[in-house]
């Protein structure tokens, strides 16, 4: 168990109280192997996004066991969850870059949280390097408003990966992109993750990108169905 970056067993989660209580996850089990790219699919309302917020320590657990990067999340205090989030790279449906910072500064923000990445100059240097890896070397000092949608999402991928996280969580990273940009973004993500042995848990509706996965997990009504 401890070797798995993500290990869920019998996880249950409900929204609402009393008569309005609505379960979204029911007794769910899932493990992700080191370096594995796992793709979660399923109709909307199947609970895949809720699952992602639990694994990402963005929500408090209700029942079952969820061990992420060695941290048991059931009953974990806020401080432990904040500390765990620093070891996870997040990629959202929208890029959510800070509009008043350049691409390079946005990426460097992810390094500010870790004292071992050195001073400001070292952080900006690392940020520039990874921006080169996602093909944006020439756009490092441009603010997000001057980038295309695909370029912004590539900056977001760079930001998620720059600090060398133990796990990458992505929620519909291609939803707001055209076919080619979306393809570029997931290919980049997969390439960088594979190079560094980072496992990826990716939620998507997009059938065009199913082939990036090592394993596709389908969900329905809060359970894994295949």
């Amino acid at each position: 168990m401890a070797d798995h970056p993500v290990a869920l067993s019998n996880v249950g989660f409900s929204f609402g109280e009393g008569a309005l209580r609505r379960p979204v996850l029911r007794g769910l089990d899932l493990t992700v192997e080191p370096g594995e790219v796992v793709l979660l699919t399923g109709p909307s309302g199947s609970g895949k996004t809720t699952l992602l917020t639990l694994v990402g320590a963005l929500r408090a657990m209700q029942q079952g066991s969820c061990v992420v990067l060695g941290q048991e999340l059931l009953g974990a205090p806020e401080s432990a969850r904040v500390a765990l989030r620093r070891r996870i790279g997040f990629i959202f449906q929208n890029h959510n870059l800070l509009g008043f910072l350049t691409a390079r500064q946005n990426v460097a923000m992810a390094l500010e949280l870790h004292p071992d990445f050195g001073d400001e100059a070292a952080r900006l240097g690392m940020a520039g390097e990874i921006l080169g890896r996602v093909g944006l070397a020439d756009f490092a000092d441009v603010v997000p408003a001057k980038l295309s949608g695909g370029q912004r999402q590539r900056v977001a991928v760079a930001r998620a990966l720059v600090a060398g996280p133990g796990l990458i969580l992505a929620d519909e990273p291609t939803a707001a992109l055209d076919r080619q940009s979306g393809r570029d973004v997931v290919d980049l993500m997969r390439g960088l993750a594979k190079d560094r042995g980072m496992p990826v848990l990716l939620v998507t509706h997009d059938p065009r990108i199913l082939d990036v996965a090592d394993r596709v997990v389908a969900m329905e009504d809060g359970r894994i169905v295949g």
């Binding site: 989030r85 620093r86 959202f92 959510n96 923000m109 992810a110 949280l113």
Partner: peptide, 15 residues
């Protein structure tokens, strides 16, 4: 006007 960005910073582990 920056709620999404602030939430992202929280998700990244900013306290």
């Amino acid at each position: 006007s920056h709620l999404a960005e602030y939430a992202t910073l929280k998700a990244m582990g900013f306290s």
